[in-house]
Amino acid sequence: MNYASPSVRLAHLHKAYGKTVAVEELSLEILPGEIFGLIGPDGAGKTTVMRIVAALTLPDGGQAEVMGHDVATHPMRVKEHIGYMPQRFSLYPDLTVAENLRFFADLYKVPTAERIVREQRLMQFSRLGPFRKRRAAQLSGGMKQKLALACTLMHTPEVLILDEPTTGVDPLSRQEFWAILRELAASGQALLVSTPYMDEALLCHRVALMHNGRVLTAGQPHDIPAHFKHRLLEIVAGDVPRARKRLLTCGPAGIQVSRFGDRLHVVYGTADQERQIRSCLAEESAEIFTVPPSIEDTFVTLMHEGSSR
């Protein structure tokens, strides 16, 4: 096996459901040991991409390869190399933790001796050991996600596909979960992870921001804000609603004003606009700072450009 070659290679993928285009002209490569994040809202096409990689859905056009096997022509080969965790919890609620693990070990034909060793290891790192005999239905949200992950890891796949594994999971469980994903990547697995949480982009090695089936931009998460082509002001005001109304009336045209709790974010373009904003707020007891854009800010502006294109 040549480890320099990508674990997942997607080229010019295209997929439509009737008239709805789910994925358009998508190309990406994931290397072993890499966490690749698909970041975007519901309906962006993340799930479709993941199902294509998992050989669950055929692309209408383009090519998808997992560990060198084409998903269209060799789906069974692909399935031997992947672990897939769907967005919806899809283990058997009436089976215990141990029985669910056992079931997937058998489906992948993991030898018994191996199975016992792996089960112990997975129990340890997912901290599900004390709950072996508990039915899956009775686990908490975070524990369910960890069990689902453990089940997909039973056959030590080279490629892990995780569809919104942390949606609806509280921040603490999310942090734990991401720690596990980092460990897996460190051991050489390639991970394709989707998430609607922009802040989780920072936990990936590389990300693609997706919207309406298209990749808005891709790259290392810290490079993403470089695509933000505007300027951003943060305004901390005593009376935020009043400051907002004032900006909307006397501020320059074409700016975006969003409230974030006790402050406002204003996206603008030119130094002239900035002067207007400052003079407009002169009577408010407002502090005005220039702040660096976040990934979410970048996403929003790219989204606007994408839809106006």
């Binding site: 809202p41 609806g168 509280d170 609607p196 969003s258 606007h304």
Partner: peptide, 30 residues
């Protein structure tokens, strides 16, 4: 949950409007 960042911002603008209009808003989020 699951909406794009623009929709999320729009939504929060609506929440602020409702609160300024006199409503109390009790919200859970992850």
């Amino acid at each position: 949950g699951g909406v794009d960042p623009v929709a999320r911002r729009t939504f929060w603008d609506l929440i602020y409007d409702l609160s300024e209009g006199g409503a109390t808003v009790f919200v859970t989020t992850h």
